[in-house]
């Protein structure tokens, strides 16, 4: 049994000082996934949220449970309408954090639960938004959300060969943290979200990603010529042009163009997937490489073999 992508849904992109709630953005994409596929909430075994920057820096409950509450109200009620005991075997949700690679780590976990037969469907949802708009330094990401609904398939193909490579020597290259202090132009002291990025971060990401792809291909026995499409992370800025040069890939590397000076963070690869889904390049490709890069530096890679090809 493998895992196929049943649906991917993305939100609009928001930028600037508008207060956008990452939880409701996420919940809308989950609803769209369910509505488009006709899968009822009670069939979703796992819901994993992999967003990092969240509404008001919420610590508990998990953001995933709040998303579940908004988007999947029916999962708590049996078709009979009885609420009692309705949860046994119902949806379980939690948050997963792995920087820009969290989305693919979430997919790996759901793929595992599908393979062991514990669930039939699972959702990985991810969103980032400025926790307190205007109270951040160097925060440059869109408020954006994306969900991917995964289902078991009896046919050949689906996700395989999940690999994660880490480069802890670059762990200081990119950090997202809150510190208590003053922000220029603002009165009083607050908890301020601060993004710190070294000058060499983009270059290091490109190097690590290219080295990881080489290692991945070596370990799995594939060559770059076997890959038809690459669904990559969309940040940091400059990653994709650098990767194109380094990988010298003849295949298409999906880039999400948005014309604004902001970046897509954890939802980046899901937006790339949606683009390729819409222009049919995903369905037309046999071997698709998911390549995520994030702070750490971590690189996660997985192969998706299209059951339809």
């Amino acid at each position: 049994m493998g895992t196929r992508i049943s649906m991917v849904s993305v939100s609009k992109l928001y930028s600037g000082f508008r207060s956008v709630n990452s939880i409701s953005l996420s919940a809308n994409t989950v609803k769209e996934c369910l509505f488009s596929t006709g899968i009822v909430p009670s069939e979703i075994g796992l819901l994993i949220n992999t967003g990092i920057y969240r509404y008001r820096n919420t610590g508990e409950p998990s953001i995933a449970s709040l998303i579940q509450h908004i988007s999947m109200p029916a999962s708590r009620i049996k078709p009979s309408g009885k609420k009692e005991n309705a949860f046994i075997g119902g949806t379980f949700s939690f948050d997963l954090g792995n920087g820009g690679c969290g989305w693919l780590s979430g997919i790996e976990i759901i793929d595992g639960f599908i393979r062991t037969g514990r669930i039939k469907h699972g959702i990985v949802v991810t969103a980032d938004s400025e926790p307190f708009p205007g109270f951040s330094e160097n925060y440059r990401f869109y408020s954006a959300a994306a969900s991917v609904l995964l289902s078991g398939t009896e046919t050949e193909g689906g996700f395989s060969h999940f690999r994660t490579y880490t480069f802890p020597e670059f762990s200081e290259d990119f950090t997202g943290l809150t510190r208590f202090g003053k922000k220029k132009g603002r009165w009083g002291r607050r908890n301020i979200l601060e993004i710190r990025e070294s000058e060499t971060y983009v270059e290091d990401c490109i190097k690590c990603a290219a080295a990881s792809v080489d290692r991945f291909l070596g370990e799995t026995g594939y060559s770059m010529g076997d890959i038809d499409l690459i669904i990559p992370s969309q940040s940091p800025k400059g990653l994709l042009p650098g990767l194109k040069d380094k990988l010298s890939a003849s295949c298409k590397l999906v880039e999400v163009r948005n014309g604004m000076n902001r970046e897509l963070h954890t939802a980046g690869p899901a937006f790339a997937l949606k683009n390729s889904w819409n222009d049919n390049s995903f369905i037309a490709s046999e071997n698709i490489l998911f390549l995520t890069v994030g702070s750490g530096i971590s690189v996660s890679i997985a192969l998706f073999q299209n059951p339809s090809c």
Binding site: G59, E60, H69, T91, F92
Partner: peptide, 24 residues
């Protein structure tokens, strides 16, 4: 066994970082 999220009860305990003081 039985790991479940009763999300309609997610509002019963909430925590996070303070806005104007250090900590949570």
């Amino acid at each position: 066994s039985g790991f479940s999220t009763f999300s309609h009860l997610s509002g019963l305990c909430k925590g996070g970082q303070n806005k104007r003081t250090p900590g949570g």
